[in-house]
Amino acid sequence: MSTVQPLQRPRSIQQMLERVQHMITMESIGQAFAFEPRASDVFIATFPKSGTTWLQQIVHGLRTGGDMAFDEITEVVPWLETALDLGLDINAPQRAEPRAYKCHLPWPMIPKGGRYVLAVRDPRDVLVSQYHFWNGWFFETGSVSVEDLARGLFLNEELPFNYYRHLQSWWPERQQPQVLMLCYESMLADPQAAIRRIADFIGVTLNEALLSRVLEQSSVEFMRAHARQFDDHLLRDARDEVCGLPPGTVGGSKVRAGRAGGHVAELTDAVRAELDAAWQREIAGPLGLADYAALRRALDAGA
């Protein structure tokens, strides 16, 4: 009598890459590419782990006056690339106007004709956040180090999609009237100012009561207290088995520390040097930004 082997999480980056390719079907990606937006539609187009969920919550709170009656944020702000796989109709009316969508697409691939909000975050913190997000979900807890993830995924030049290519594609578009590019660290420093800019950009009239409500409901304390509404369980319920993952994720938090500079305590000097070298190669040369601090100064100055 044969025994069905229980599903196991990957224990290496290579195994992880083999599994993660099944997360989104080509049919679902094709639907995302073919989507024809309205001029009022808002795309939250941030690179993963750079404030995407935070922006979803801010945009949804602004347009609804603070609605929290959803099981998971993807229900009300669909992830465009996964919508077909999750059975979500991207053409359907949403809970309020403007319609809003999450996506991680670079500029050349994103459907054109809407409005685009994105935050840019220090790549060293993005790497650390990605590690904690994948740890216990797409690889067995503790089986892969942050150094493994850095070299096998984040800095892997053979992969078609990474932080640096995403930034390269969006940076030249930042001053278009339909694009709002924010600095994650500046949003942390002055969330009220960020909410005001986003409200103005998406066409929502902001009064002090709404500002106060959205400020509270988009705080890390509030979102951590309501963690299940921001944990991607709709995606996991639909796709984990297809990816060969067992149920019962122990990691994968999307709302963790909500701070800047966490990489200082978690990255080795060697990994930090490799990230710095990648910045010089991929960003400093092509975009003329000597380091991430220079990018932040340019964004904050509206340059």
Rank of each mutant, 00 (worst) to 15 (best):
S2Q: 09
T3G: 12
V4R: 15
Q5D: 11
S12F: 07
V20H: 06
M23R: 14
I29Y: 14
G30H: 09
A34S: 14
A34P: 10
R38S: 14
R38C: 10
D41L: 08
F43I: 02
K49C: 12
S50A: 15
G51Q: 09
L55H: 06
I58R: 01
T64Y: 03
G66K: 04
F70R: 03
I73Y: 03
L80H: 02
L80D: 04
L84E: 11
D85V: 11
G87A: 01
G87H: 02
D89K: 08
I90S: 01
P93Y: 00
Q94R: 09
Y101V: 11
P106L: 05
W107D: 02
K112L: 10
R115L: 09
Y116C: 10
R121C: 07
R124C: 08
V126M: 05
V128C: 10
S129W: 08
Y131K: 05
Y131P: 04
H132Q: 07
W134H: 12
N135S: 11
G136S: 06
F139Y: 13
G142R: 09
V144P: 00
A150V: 12
A150P: 15
F154G: 10
F154A: 00
L155S: 07
N162M: 05
N162H: 08
Y163W: 11
Q168T: 14
W170N: 03
W170M: 05
P177R: 02
C183W: 10
S186G: 12
Q192K: 12
A193L: 13
A193Q: 14
A193R: 14
A194P: 11
A194G: 12
I195N: 04
F201M: 04
V204W: 00
L206Q: 01
A209K: 07
R213E: 10
R213G: 02
F222S: 07
F222G: 01
M223F: 04
A225I: 10
Q229K: 05
D231W: 00
H233F: 09
L235K: 00
L235F: 03
D237R: 14
D237H: 11
D237N: 13
A238I: 01
A238Q: 00
V242E: 15
V250K: 01
V250D: 02
K254D: 05
R256L: 06
A257W: 13
A257Q: 15
G258S: 03
G258M: 02
R259K: 15
R259P: 07
A260W: 01
A265G: 07
T268L: 01
D269F: 06
D269C: 04
G285Q: 03
L287H: 08
L287M: 04
Y292N: 03
A293S: 13
A294L: 02
L295Q: 01
A298Q: 12
A303T: 05
